[in-house]
Computed example of a mutant assay.
Amino acid sequence: MLDPRSIVFILAALSLLMAIVLSAMPSSMSDRQSGARHWSIGMLGVSIASVLYGLRGFAPDFFSMALANAVSLVAVALLYSGGRAFFGLPRHKPALIAALVISNLALLYFLYVEDHYASRVVVYSAVSGVLLFLVCRDVLIHRPRQADRARFPYLFTAFSVLFDVLVSCARIINALFVSSGGSDFLAPTPINALYFSTHSLLAICISVGFILMLNERLHARLQYQLSHDALTNAYSRSMIFELAQHELDSNQHPISLLLLDIDHFKQVNDSLGHQGGDAVLKHFVHTLADNLRHDEPLGRYGGEEFVVLLRNTPARDANATAERLRQAIADTPYRDGQNEYPLTASIGCATTHERQSLEQLLQQADTALYQAKRGGRNRVEHA
């Protein structure tokens, strides 16, 4: 059986490794992954505290006990703050600092005023256990719920943290009901070996969980960037076509496509400049999004042209939707300060027939759009 001192030094080495891995992540993501830096510094704190604990009997108690406890609690607080930052939640800094100050004063009291090992265990384990429980709660409550987001990284992290909370509770119970002096902290007993072994394993599991969460979020962001237009946040051309092709392949007819074009957009660019034109495109997409259901995806076809996919929508309903969108655009001018710029759109609509390809459907919608433009613009035409 490994003695607790050896396990503590192993924990120090593994925590330092996790700190290095986590520290590399924010710089490679331009600091967009909030929380990673907190977790990195927190794991570095666990490593430093473990080394100080391991020096028990070779270094003064101030370093191997008082300072080690303080660094360890700050490290746990950083893990909590990192989780809050990761999910964009308030970090409650004043309350957190107050809790750390009070708990460390209590630890100093039970070391220098009244040397009582069990009380130190209870104070330390209670504070760290509560903070870790709050980490678990935040991960479970605020983890992404979208169907296309992975669940495993968040559940793995939450249950790893929860298990560490249970270990802290077990340590409190052991300290309260089993007589133990201060010299027993690194004594080679089964209880100490079990505690430090479990704690070391869980510290690594929690770090791995953080890394999995960071990677999942990065993957989700990359997926979003690949599937959405960078300027307007509408679906990209390839993505809207992929969605349309999937609907065609599923043989769930009828399917309708709306092809929308902002009328006289060149004049908009000429009068407002290209930045103003970009703002108009964003305004246009925002107006459409406000008037579409969640199951009616909008994509940018190119330039000032956009595509709306209408699932299980016959020609009659597609025309009604197109007319509603046309009216909404006309009723929602673009505002630049005190100035208003009226907008209109021409819309071509096409509805599938059996065994019709996506190319044929797009061609029909494009033909209808051309007819709407030739007919005076600001109108809807159906192929």
Results as ranks from 00 to 15, higher is better:
residue 3 D to N: 13
residue 102 I to T: 11
residue 207 S to L: 09
residue 267 Q to K: 13
residue 193 A to R: 10
residue 196 F to P: 02
residue 200 S to F: 12
residue 320 A to Y: 01
residue 75 A to Y: 05
residue 123 V to Q: 04
residue 254 P to D: 02
residue 241 F to R: 05
residue 61 D to P: 02
residue 7 I to C: 02
residue 115 D to R: 13
residue 141 I to R: 13
residue 204 I to M: 14
residue 374 R to P: 00
residue 101 V to W: 00
residue 302 G to I: 05
residue 92 H to E: 09
residue 103 S to E: 00
residue 305 E to I: 08
residue 307 V to D: 07
residue 287 T to W: 09
residue 261 D to K: 06
residue 219 H to V: 13
residue 319 N to T: 03
residue 104 N to G: 02
residue 222 L to D: 01
residue 140 L to A: 12
residue 72 S to Q: 15
residue 200 S to N: 10
residue 362 L to S: 03
residue 272 L to T: 11
residue 293 R to C: 14
residue 210 F to Q: 11
residue 260 L to G: 07
residue 55 L to Q: 10
residue 38 H to I: 00
residue 319 N to Y: 05
residue 180 S to T: 02
residue 248 L to D: 01
residue 173 I to N: 05
residue 217 R to Q: 08
residue 181 G to M: 00
residue 182 G to R: 06
residue 376 G to L: 08
residue 252 Q to Y: 05
residue 228 H to A: 04
residue 345 A to S: 15
residue 15 S to H: 04
residue 38 H to C: 06
residue 231 L to P: 06
residue 220 A to V: 05
residue 287 T to A: 07
residue 91 R to P: 00
residue 238 S to M: 03
residue 122 V to G: 02
residue 307 V to H: 09
residue 66 A to T: 14
residue 29 M to C: 01
residue 366 D to F: 04
residue 91 R to A: 00
residue 139 V to A: 08
residue 219 H to S: 14
residue 64 S to N: 07
residue 361 L to A: 10
residue 83 G to K: 02
residue 18 M to A: 15
residue 155 L to Q: 07
residue 49 A to S: 15
residue 152 F to M: 12
residue 282 K to P: 01
residue 341 Y to Q: 07
residue 120 R to H: 04
residue 66 A to R: 04
residue 85 A to V: 01
residue 92 H to P: 00
residue 108 L to D: 13
residue 133 F to N: 07
residue 379 R to Y: 02
residue 282 K to D: 04
residue 321 T to A: 15
residue 304 E to F: 12
residue 134 L to C: 08
residue 90 P to H: 00
residue 331 D to F: 01
residue 269 N to F: 13
residue 249 D to F: 01
residue 196 F to K: 02
residue 294 H to A: 14
residue 203 A to R: 10
residue 72 S to A: 15
residue 62 F to L: 06
residue 54 G to D: 07
residue 322 A to V: 11
residue 322 A to Q: 10
residue 380 V to C: 14
residue 155 L to W: 08
residue 364 Q to L: 14
residue 200 S to A: 15
residue 77 A to Q: 07
residue 41 I to L: 13
residue 268 V to T: 14
residue 317 D to M: 13
residue 137 R to L: 14
residue 103 S to Y: 01
residue 56 R to I: 03
residue 15 S to E: 06
residue 161 V to T: 13
residue 324 R to M: 15
residue 103 S to D: 00
residue 281 L to N: 06
residue 153 P to Y: 09
residue 151 R to F: 05
residue 353 H to A: 02
residue 7 I to F: 03
residue 345 A to P: 08
residue 179 S to F: 11
residue 1 M to S: 08
residue 339 N to W: 06
residue 319 N to F: 06
residue 103 S to W: 01
residue 143 R to K: 13
residue 351 T to F: 03
residue 228 H to V: 08
residue 351 T to K: 01
residue 136 C to Q: 12
residue 382 H to C: 11
residue 236 S to P: 05
